[in-house]
Write a protein that binds this DNA or RNA. Structure first.
Lengths: 148, 148
DNA sequence: TACAGAATATAGTCTATGCTATATTCGTAA
DNA sequence: TTACGAATATAGCATAGACTATATTCTGTA
């Protein structure tokens, strides 16, 4: 098989693969954003505000990392913040946090219904929740309903 | 609820959360590495070698990015390469590629058995495969066996 | 109210992952 | 066998996401 033939025959596959892998890579920022937004929402519910130091503790990063990430979230219209003040979600950020939490719960309940031990289920749900299509979420909900 | 109380009461949770989120963040490099290793393995099977330009086309990145990433993989003992030559997996790299592919197949077959449409299943399998514990993989295999 | 300690900001550094532009090398067809 | 096009290398740049060290601001308490 010559190299030019290889290139030609895989051209269409490459286009498909390209889209798929690009999506995967772009998920990274989205994933991190969702983790922050959920955490900010949780802290706000629990304490009435989300302080950088609490976010840092919960996520296991330095407060500097939190500051920088929050600046990006702010730039993207997902949170509001003023110097030396707590961080709050915008409506858009709240919507994303709610969706992320819903997905998380769906995946977690599903894994438990499937018979995965609770500790593994919790960890895996965290990793998986950012990577599921609506179709798979739907299938998971249906399975959980039948096997709860 | 005072701030110091909040901090104290959430201290244990924070430790747990810290470990969980840290794992998630570190998964990224591993994820990318697995994608490259699987791709290199696929190309080697198909063409007898994996060229940077083919990897770049398949993954949808520039060949420069491939060169740099391959350098990291080489540094980590997962591939071998010489200037102007194709890239090959080391035994260690091959082992990781095989495991990744096995996990991918397990997840894909599971999603199909669950009733997820093929196109969504393929995309989601790609995203999910990097984030599952052995316990969940086991549960997936068992489900697929019963519902194939 | 003023001060000490907690929280936040800022400066500077690092690695990973991406890119474009340019130079070099390879491989093949004339 | 040479020259041209393809492949690879290299230089330089950007952004995200992490850190430490240091400076500044805030806040609760003495």
């Amino acid at each position: 098989m010559s190299k030019s033939e290889t290139k030609t025959s895989s051209a269409k596959n490459a286009v498909v693969a390209k889209a798929r892998f690009a999506r995967i890579r772009n998920d990274h920022a989205k994933e991190l954003a969702e983790d922050y937004l959920e955490m900010i929402d949780d802290l706000t519910s629990a304490n009435g505000e989300a302080r950088a130091v609490d976010i840092a503790n919960q996520l296991g990063v330095s407060h500097v990392t939190v500051t920088k990430t929050v600046a990006r979230l702010k730039r993207d219209g997902l949170v509001t913040s003023q110097p030396y003040r707590s961080i709050f979600l915008t409506p858009k950020g709240k919507r994303i946090a709610d969706n992320a939490r819903r997905r998380h719960q769906t995946v977690l309940q599903f894994l438990l219904a499937l018979g995965v031990p609770a500790d593994s289920a919790e960890i895996d749900a965290e990793g998986i929740e950012h990577h599921i299509s609506p179709a798979t979420l739907k299938a998971m909900r249906e399975f959980t309903k039948k096997n709860a």
